[in-house]
């Protein structure tokens, strides 16, 4: 039996509120267990593409499937881990790393499910995986940008995702932490077999770890190993159709 790809887009077009077309006739297949970077200039449609994949937006034309099911009606949502852009995570309240990561176990437990001993163990395990065991009870706002992203990755991992999607995870993160983030994701991919979709306008942090690089600018303008990327496009601000 043929296994459905993790992500499949067929002739997908999209426009916000009937405005200008953001994506046109996009075809994309991402297999289970792949580590793929979706890159491109700001406004090129890569975040929109990710939102379509996650079922947060519906295509104007074409089909988006997750593991063979229509993305907006995907039945196993608790197997999806998602890190939105950091700006949408601005919290006023003091919240600890443990509280953040515990929230990641909710989809599997259900809204009425208590946090059992096994869930607590998963929380500790996820925090240890991202190297924040020493900071478990610290407030998120006292952590560096890179550590905050690690905490959010731990939250996603606590749900034991099959697919992990990250949107601009290196925004506001220093170069050293970006490298560390790339290495962490590579380790999670290798050790846990998680399918990873990494969306960013700068892909330097994962260039040496991803198997595929997909450049998006209204359409897919490059899809292949980073080593085959034409030199001109190494700086995504120089992407031209």
């Amino acid at each position: 039996m043929q296994v459905a790809p993790a992500v499949e887009l067929e002739s997908v077009s999209f426009a916000y509120g009937g405005g200008e077309t953001v994506l046109r006739e996009v075809d994309l297949r991402i297999g289970t267990g792949e580590f793929v970077a979706l890159a491109g200039p700001n406004g090129g449609g890569k975040t929109t593409l990710l939102r379509l994949v996650l079922g947060l937006e519906r295509p104007a034309a074409g089909a988006v499937r997750l593991y063979g099911e229509p993305a907006e009606r995907f039945s196993a949502r608790d197997t999806l881990g998602y890190l939105p852009q950091r700006a949408s995570l601005a919290l006023d309240a003091p919240v600890t790393v443990r509280e953040i990561v515990a929230a990641g176990t909710l989809p599997a437990r259900g809204v009425f499910g208590p946090l059992r001993r096994a869930d607590r163990a998963r929380v500790d395990e996820a925090i240890a995986l991202v190297g924040l065991a020493e900071r478990t009870d610290d407030q998120l706002r006292l952590l560096s940008g890179g550590q905050q992203q690690r905490a959010m990755i731990a939250k996603a991992l606590a749900g034991r995702p099959r697919l992990l999607a990250l949107d601009e995870p290196t925004t506001g993160v220093d170069a050293e932490s970006q490298e560390a983030l790339g290495e962490l994701l590579a380790r999670l991919h290798d050790d846990l077999g998680v399918t990873i979709l990494y969306v960013s306008h700068e892909f330097g942090a994962v260039e040496h770890h991803v198997e595929r690089l997909v450049l998006v600018r209204g359409a897919i303008v490059f899809d292949g190993p980073p080593s085959e990327l034409p030199g001109l496009w190494h700086d995504p601000s120089h992407v031209h159709v």
Partner: peptide, 27 residues
């Protein structure tokens, strides 16, 4: 008391919760 953790998950990351199938609209 029963929904404290669910409400907290939405407070922490509404969009992430929605993607993972938490019934954010109901909450």
């Amino acid at each position: 008391a029963v929904l404290y953790r669910a409400f907290s998950a939405v407070v922490i990351d509404e969009e992430g919760a929605r993607v993972s199938g938490v019934p954010v609209g109901f909450l």
